[in-house]
Write a protein that binds this DNA or RNA. Structure first.
Lengths: 148, 148
DNA sequence: ACAAAATAGTTTCCAAAGAAACTATTTTTA
DNA sequence: TAAAAATAGTTTCTTTGGAAACTATTTTGT
């Protein structure tokens, strides 16, 4: 019975899908999608940053970043302007609408993590966050290295 | 600086996306997509099972299950037949083509998990799998309970 | 026994995200 | 300094997966 099953991959997918459903359900009423939330977080926390920074901070492709930010600009959560020193680069700024929403979205994010870690002890929770980050960075570095 | 950031959600998404890229790159050469892999695993392990069991075992919607299994049938990895006792239910069987592929896909799955857990000690690895499962089941139960 | 409810699958529509090809700027280098 | 390479963004196409509406079969409750 000790075959290698890699059953854990199922839980990686499950955790992600259910988390997205949780976030979507709660943020929909506020007018944003779950996918937009991390972008609003970064815009609000940074105040001003070039668009390509979203790619590195979230480890998301520039195509996806372009699409999400175009949507957020359309909906009035951010503004963008061409950088003065580099004509290729777009600077991104949060609007007041985004800044007003920010604490509510943070609250939703925390509630999501609470539900994820509900059956854990405080120590397990700390350990889980550590290992989650470790695993994500490890597989990410490996995959990114292949594509060069 | 001790604000609640729910930054861990970023790593949940990252782990999932990079894992999918890893699997897709390796299974593409074998003729299947990363999304099909868990379905082939279950079909091969079970030998015969009703279609709705894929929904419960993978915690994936019946619409998605119907589409993936239709694709796998098309590509010759499974066969399906209406259950003798219940005319609504479809029984799913793996083909020899799937059974031949199975060990290779298992190997790829294991390599993926190896990369994920590469910087971990053996003890951390065990702990990670435990907590990953715990978190996925916890958020899943909560989300599913809401939708009733 | 038959109408209502539940169950199994399918299909359509939509959101999230990567890949690749493209444009437009900068930076390097020969 | 002009051509080549690198960088920043956009657009198009594709894959993955859920939601909801739909069909077709049981199962239940009266």
């Amino acid at each position: 019975m000790e075959q290698q099953t890699s059953e854990e991959l199922k839980y990686v997918s499950m955790l992600h899908r259910k988390t997205q459903i949780f976030l979507n359900e709660r943020t929909k009423a506020l007018g944003v999608s779950g996918a937009e939330v991390p972008f609003i977080f970064i815009a609000c926390r940074m105040g001003q940053l070039p668009q390509y920074q979203f790619c590195t901070m979230l480890d998301i492709s520039k195509g996806t970043v372009a699409k999400v930010l175009a949507g957020l600009e359309q909906e009035g959560y951010i503004t963008r302007s061409i950088n003065a020193e580099d004509g290729r680069s777009m600077d991104v700024f949060p609007t007041q609408k985004a800044l007003d929403l920010y604490p509510k979205l943070q609250e939703i994010g925390c509630r999501c993590m609470d539900k994820m870690t509900e059956p854990m002890t405080e120590q397990e929770r700390e350990q889980f966050f550590l290992l989650l980050k470790k695993s994500a960075l490890s597989i990410s570095r490996f995959v990114d290295a292949l594509q060069e």
